[in-house]
Amino acid sequence: MKIAIDIGGTFIKAGVIDSEQNLYSYQKVKTPNNKDRGIVKEVIRIIETYKQEFNLNNPDVGISTAGVVDSKKGEITYAGPTIPYYNGTNFKKALTDIAGNVEINNDVSSALLGELIDYNTDVKSIFLLTIGTGIGGAYYEDKLLEGKQYRACEIGYLLYDKNTGKTYEDRGSTTALKTSIQEQYKEVITVEKLFNKAHANDEKAMKILKEWANHVAEGIAQIQIMFDPELILIGGGISKQEERLIGLIEPFIDDYLPENYGHAIIETTSKGNDSALYGAVSTFYN
C-alpha cells in the first residue's frame, strides 16, 4: 500500500493505492495558504491519518504537484503565482521522519506516468497535453523527459504573439474558452453546456468552440513536429468530452503541418483528473 498525494493550486487530493491499482480512502481538501508551510503541514496530516487507518509503518509516499520540480532533490524550484510561497519547499527533507521512500514529480509528468499503466509496452512514445486553467505537457520515451532545469515540455509558453502578448495557453486553455463564452453569452454557460449546445447544432456555440479548437490544434502541430510521438493524450477536466473533443480539434491539426506530414493518434486520458494520483506511486510498483 502506497500513499499518493496530488497538490494543486486549489485542492490537494490523496488516497492509498495498492499493487492492483485499487484506490482507497480518497480525499480532497482545499490547498492551504503556504505562507507558514501550510501545504507541508497538510501533507504530514494526510500521511499520519493514512498510517493510522491502514496500520502503515514508514510508508512509501508519492507526490504529484503543480510547479517545476527537481525530482532528485524532491524540491519545488519554481511555482510562479500558482501557489504563493511554494518555491524551495523540499518534501524529501520534510517527510524524513514519517515516511520511507518519497518520490515527487510535476503534476503533468505524474499524470502521464499514471496513464502509462494502461498502455501496452508496444507504445514507446507518448505526449500528454493537459488543458485546464493553463496548459501543461509531459513526454515519455523510455523515461520522462525532464530537462536540465526540470522545465522540459512547458508548452503553454509556446506560440507567443508579440502583438497581443498572449501565449499558447492564453489562447488554448479552458480559461481562454471560458472567457470567450462570457463575452458571447449574457447567461451563465459552462464548458459542458457549451459542448451540448454545439452538439445540438447551436451556431454560436459551434463558432466559439471551433475558434478555440483551432488554437489548441496549432499547439498540437508543434508537439508533433518537435517530438514525433506515437500517441498524444489530452487530459484535464475537458477530456471528459472524449470523442466530441477529439472530433472538434483533429480536423484543424493538418492546417499547421506541412502537406502530407501526418500526426500521432489523438486520444483523451483514461483516468481523467485522477491520473496524477496513480502516477505519483507508479514507480514504486515497477
Rank of each mutant, 00 (worst) to 15 (best):
D18H: 06
A198F: 03
A99R: 02
H199F: 06
E203L: 11
E75C: 03
F227K: 04
E103P: 01
N55Y: 07
P81Y: 09
I234T: 03
Y140E: 04
S173C: 06
N55V: 07
V123A: 02
G236C: 10
A4C: 05
I232T: 14
L95N: 13
A4T: 01
K178M: 14
K124T: 13
E146W: 08
E187D: 14
G235E: 05
V61P: 12
K93A: 12
K166L: 12
K51D: 09
K35T: 01
N105H: 14
R171N: 10
S173G: 01
W212L: 04
S19A: 12
I12K: 12
T283G: 00
R171D: 06
D70A: 11
D122P: 00
I7Y: 08
Y86P: 04
G236F: 13
Y157D: 00
T175E: 07
D36K: 11
K207D: 14
G156N: 09
I5R: 04
L177V: 10
G38Y: 06
I63N: 07
M206N: 15
D202E: 14
S239G: 11
G15L: 07
V191P: 00
T133V: 07
I117K: 13
D161I: 08
S173E: 05
S110L: 01
K197R: 13
G247D: 11
G279R: 01
G9I: 00
D161F: 07
Y278D: 01
L23W: 09
L194A: 10
N58R: 13
T269R: 04
S275M: 04
T133L: 07
I46H: 15
I39Y: 06
N120I: 01
G219H: 10
I63M: 06
A221P: 12
D60K: 11
Y78L: 13
C153S: 11
L277V: 09
K207E: 15
G9R: 05
A79N: 12
N90P: 00
Y139P: 01
L159C: 01
G8N: 07
V123C: 02
A66R: 10
K178G: 01
A138F: 05
T179R: 12
M1T: 08
D255N: 15
P81N: 14
C153A: 15
L177C: 10
G100T: 02
Y150Q: 08
G147Q: 07
I63H: 05
Y86I: 01
P81T: 09
I238D: 06
V108R: 03
L158M: 15
Q52Y: 08
D255P: 04
I131E: 00
K30G: 00
